[in-house]
């Protein structure tokens, strides 16, 4: 079987398109690359969806935590503590069994026990909490002069937030947020290794890598391939976030524009 044929059969296997049976023996390098790459679809899906939705909740949480109103501040603080203070792995387990019992009482929640929605919700809350803390830190380090200038121009409420506070907050938080995004993508590999079941062997990249390692009892091929894909993904994320960073800083004179110095810090 040629490699092209393999890609046709297994390229979209993780979302259920193509050959149904996974290869069983005599695994070729091409099958390794194709199936693990196919699994990356899930990692990218979880990562992008969680980031896109989590971003807004994170902004809200940061504003809430910085608020002077107790009724806004306390819930935000607790939410952030709850999701940052406990392991994502346990959150997945707890959420899954919570959804399971919800489903038994109300069939309406059926979709929650499948990974595409249930795990996404957990990742959404999780990344919102971590980014919320990052944004909160940035919010507190907005230069006082910026806000005073906005006040002097008579800006209040929404327009002050939209034009001054929010862009500055993003600008300050961006390097740390990039870091968070990278580790969120890494965290997506946990989904199918916690409670969420893999339906019809449609798993993520680590699931397929684990499948190969189990079958061949040789970890030295599938895991480096997985590593290769993830390093590629990390580079793409750094590039994409770098572009946004450029746009966020476009008003600054070129000399003052801070080149994004990204030091991958494990801050999860």
């Amino acid at each position: 079987m040629s490699c092209l044929q393999t890609i046709q059969d297994y390229g979209l296997r993780s979302i259920g398109i193509g050959e149904r049976l996974l290869p069983r023996n005599d695994f070729t390098l091409c099958e390794h690359f194709t199936l693990i790459g196919s699994g990356m679809i899930w990692n990218i899906y979880f990562g992008i969806m969680a980031l896109a939705t989590g971003f807004f909740l994170a902004t809200a949480l940061a504003m809430g935590k910085a608020s002077t109103n107790k009724w806004l501040r306390k819930p935000s603080e607790w939410f952030i503590f709850l999701f940052r203070g406990s392991p994502l792995f346990i959150q997945f387990f707890f959420a899954y069994f919570l959804f399971l019992s919800l489903k038994q009482s109300f069939p309406f929640f059926d979709a929650l026990t499948s990974a595409w929605l249930g795990a996404l919700i957990v990742l959404f809350f999780n990344t919102a909490a971590y980014s919320g803390e990052i944004f909160y830190g940035a919010l507190r380090s907005i230069p006082k002069g910026d806000i005073e200038a906005a006040d002097a121009y008579g800006m209040t409420g929404w327009s002050r937030f939209r034009r001054i506070i929010w862009p500055t907050m993003l600008r300050l938080a961006w390097p740390a947020y990039t870091n968070e995004a990278i580790f969120l993508f890494h965290a997506t590999t946990l989904v199918f290794f916690s409670a969420f079941p893999v339906w019809q062997q449609r798993g993520d990249a680590l699931y397929y890598a684990g499948y190969f390692a189990d079958k061949t009892f040789n970890p030295f091929i599938p895991y480096p391939i997985l590593a290769f894909y993830f390093i590629l993904l990390t580079l793409v994320v750094i590039w994409g976030f770098g572009m946004i960073n450029k746009r966020l800083n476009r008003h600054l004179p070129a000399a003052k524009r801070s080149k994004m110095k990204l030091r991958l810090n494990l801050a999860r």
Binding site: H186, A213, A227, F230
Partner: peptide
Amino acid sequence: IVRGVPDIAFFMFFVIA
């Protein structure tokens, strides 16, 4: 390397390796 790749992948890898 350890930071570019998900830590879970390393856990799975090293235990067998």
